[in-house]
Write a protein that binds this DNA or RNA. Sequence first.
DNA 1: GTCTATAGCTCGATAGAC
DNA 2: GTCTATCGAGCTATAGAC
Lengths: 175, 175
Amino acid sequence: MDAFAARGYNNASLAEIADRVGLTQAGVLHYFRSKSLLLTSVLELRDETDIEQLGTERPHGLEFLRHLVDTARRNAEREGIVRLYAVLSAESVTDDHPAQVYFRDRYAGLRAFVTDAVTEACGLDASDIRARTAANAVIAVMDGLQVQWLLEPGAVDMTASTGLVIDSILAGLRR
Amino acid sequence: MDAFAARGYNNASLAEIADRVGLTQAGVLHYFRSKSLLLTSVLELRDETDIEQLGTERPHGLEFLRHLVDTARRNAEREGIVRLYAVLSAESVTDDHPAQVYFRDRYAGLRAFVTDAVTEACGLDASDIRARTAANAVIAVMDGLQVQWLLEPGAVDMTASTGLVIDSILAGLRR
DNA sequence: GTCTATAGCTCGATAGAC
DNA sequence: GTCTATCGAGCTATAGAC
C-alpha cells in the first residue's frame, strides 16, 4: 500500500516492496504471481477492512450524506490511504492499467449509493436525474479535494468544502 | 502531450514520443535535454496556448463562474487535454515528481482566481473564508468529474454537475 | 540537426538450489 | 517458503560520426 501510494503502480518496484516486508523480490512473487495481481490484491484487502470497519448496517438518506462529511474529516488523518486512492484512481485511466476495472466498478457502485441517498434525503422521485447529477458532483468534490490537499495540505479544508457542497445541493433540491 | 496523457509521465517513453514525431529517441533529447524537461515544456506550452485563446480580458465575478461551466462543456470535446491534466495532476503528488511544483503553483493560482470570483459574485467581505471554501470545492468538482468521465463517459455529465454545484453554492451564499 | 551505438541502469519474471 | 542467479527486456542519457 505505502509503495503504490508513494510512487504509483508503474513506478513502484517489487524490489522496494520486498525490502519493506523483509523478503527478496522473488519472495514476493512467490505469494503474488505478478505485480498487477499484487496491486489488485492490495485494493481488495483495503475494501474488505473498510467494510468490516463499517459494521453491519449502512446508513441511508441524509445520514449517509452526513457520513460522507465524516469520512472527509477522518481522511485528513489518513494521508496514506488518501494518497493510494488519489494516485491510483487517476493512473487507472491510462492505457491498459490493471486497476481500470476495479475503479470503474467502484465508481459505479458509489454513484448508485450516493444517488439513492440524495433521492431519499430530498424526497425526490426515483426517476429524477438531478439526484444522479448531484451524486456525481459529491463524489467528485471529495476526490478532487484530495489531490489539492496532498499537494498543499494547509490550503484546503476537505471537511468544510465537502460539507458546503452537500449542504448547498440539498438546500437547492429541497426547495 | 498525447503520450503523457495516455500513459502518464513515468510510463511514457522517449522512444514512443520520438516515433510519433518522426525522430529517434536521441533526436528528441537534442531538443529537450531530459525527459522531465520535456514534460514541463509540454505543460508550459499548453498554458501559453490556453492563455492566447482566452484573449485579453479575463471575465470577473459571476461571469467567470459561468465561464467555468462553459469550460466543463468544452472539455467534454477535448478528451486528450482532460486526460493529460487528470493523469498528471494526480501523478504529481507522488515522490519527486517533476510536475509537482507546476501543479502546486497552478492550483494556488486557480484558488485565488475562483475565490475572487465567488467573493465578487456573492458580494462577500474579502475576509470571508467561505469564498475560499467554495472556490476549492468548485475546482475539486471539475477535477473529480474528469476522472469519472474518463473511466465511463456515459455515466457522467460534467456540464450538469459542475453547473449544479456552482448554482447551489451561489444560492446558499447569497441568502 | 539527426543519426547509430552503447553505457549503465532498473525492471518483472523464471529456474532451480536449499 | 525463501533464496540466488539469471534472462530478456525496457529505459534515459551520452558520445561521437555524418
